[in-house]
Design a protein around this nucleic acid. Sequence first.
DNA 1: GCCGATATATCGCTCAGCGATGTATCGTCA
DNA 2: TGACGATACATCGCTGAGCGATATATCGGC
Lengths: 117, 117
Amino acid sequence: MDGLNPELMRGSLELMVLSVLSDGSKYGYLIQQRLKDASDELVDLKAGTLYPILHKLETKKMVRCRWDDSTGRRRKWYELTAAGKKQLKVRVDEWQAYVECLRRVLGPLADPSPMPA
Amino acid sequence: MDGLNPELMRGSLELMVLSVLSDGSKYGYLIQQRLKDASDELVDLKAGTLYPILHKLETKKMVRCRWDDSTGRRRKWYELTAAGKKQLKVRVDEWQAYVECLRRVLGPLADPSPMPA
DNA sequence: GCCGATATATCGCTCAGCGATGTATCGTCA
DNA sequence: TGACGATACATCGCTGAGCGATATATCGGC
């Protein structure tokens, strides 16, 4: 995590990983890069965060994985399972509900208040 | 927390408490109720969560507080300090940035996809 | 040959949230 | 009157996410 409040990110990292995997299988390091790109450098998942997440997703059968040793670089490719895709939808819905809820709680504070005239 | 993913809420609870205090001073239990109301029952802060947050905000001088023993009910009223109001603005901005960032990361997934025709 | 980037893995710390528990008062209903 | 649920505040200790630190190994460029 970089420019964003790290406390806020807690809980949405798994969603982000699932999301990045939704447009095709990727290996860990690539996921990390894609996430950084997609977020304008704001989300920079540390290795100590990313890999445990991937292992957890694998245990829960949300992703399947396959080692590729054909190049010098050992790479572990991850792909969403059907359960993973379903889970992603659930997580996105949870996220939308959360945002909507916060909007309600924040009330007028949530509105982009322009410079006072 | 009730209908929402509790993992997601982590990190935004303090923001919510500050937010509820922004329209006037309140005591703990009242904050809890207001938050529940404002969120359509979705956010139900437990006492074991709320009071430590308030103590922390007090320690950080984000709120000032005053006991009211005039009624039988011992109540501790909390009020945002100037620093607290400033902090609230910062937190709201962080929240907006976070939401915007997630929208970018989720990409097409973030769009409300209607029933397929 | 050294260094930074690529690539994965694990251990252990920190800290937020919260369940459990404790205390005390109030209003209501039997 | 006594029981019970709501009001009102507090603290202890557990769980689990995130991550810093550390380890290992390969690759390309200078």
